[in-house]
């Protein structure tokens, strides 16, 4: 079993992000928007997933994210990580889940990736349709989309990027575009 680790992603990814932020104008805005990407990798166990969730939420509290944002993030992270473990990795202990995240005062981006073969979110049945209401599963993606500002799956469908803006943050700066982070 690989040890759980945390590391700061540097090099190409940071350079890429700085270049993107630089194209958005003011230096102050750039410095505020570009946080450090952190990464966690853990075996397919919900207890490990919950540890990472708590770590991320704890950092969001330090950035003064409000209770509504924290509720939304906890819910979306729970759904994404649960999907990765149960549906992606089929709860196989030697398969891992990778979580990359970046938190600033303005927004949080979290990528959750599994080692599964992926799926096509476009063909998921609508869980709010009358005929599906009594089905016990299939609501995770709906909840992620409802509570996050942006949800993007990669082309394979084994990785999802969640973005949430900090509702408590007020600034005259225009928020950066949520779809421009490196992904896929």
């Amino acid at each position: 079993m690989r040890p759980v680790f945390a590391r700061v992603v540097t090099g190409t990814l940071m350079k890429h992000l700085k270049l993107q932020a630089g194209s958005r104008g003011r230096r102050e805005s750039r410095e505020k928007s570009v946080g450090l990407w952190c990464s966690e990798e853990f075996p397919s166990q919900m207890a490990e997933g919950r540890r990472v969730e708590e770590k991320i939420l704890s950092q969001c509290r330090k950035y003064a994210y409000g209770q509504r944002d924290l509720f939304a993030l906890k819910l979306a992270l729970e759904e994404a990580i649960c999907n990765a473990i149960r549906h992606g990795n089929k709860s196989t202990p030697n398969k891992h889940v990778r979580v990359k995240y970046r938190i600033t005062r303005e927004r949080i981006d979290v990528m959750v990736e599994d080692e599964g073969s992926g799926f096509d979110p476009a063909v998921l049945p609508d869980p709010t349709a009358d005929q599906n209401l009594e089905r016990a599963c299939g609501r995770g993606v709906l909840l992620m989309r409802a509570y996050m500002n942006n949800v993007v799956f990669n082309s394979v469908g084994n990785s999802v990027m969640l973005t949430k803006f900090n509702e408590s943050y007020s600034s005259s700066d225009t928020p950066i575009n949520s779809t421009t982070v490196a992904f896929g």
């Binding site: 906890k74 729970e78 759904e79 649960c82 089905r135 016990a136 599963c137 609501r139 995770g140 909840l143």
Partner: peptide
């Protein structure tokens, strides 16, 4: 707090 797993159990 609750998740879709809790909703599934209630259903």
């Amino acid at each position: 707090h609750l998740s879709s797993a809790a909703l599934g159990t209630l259903i």
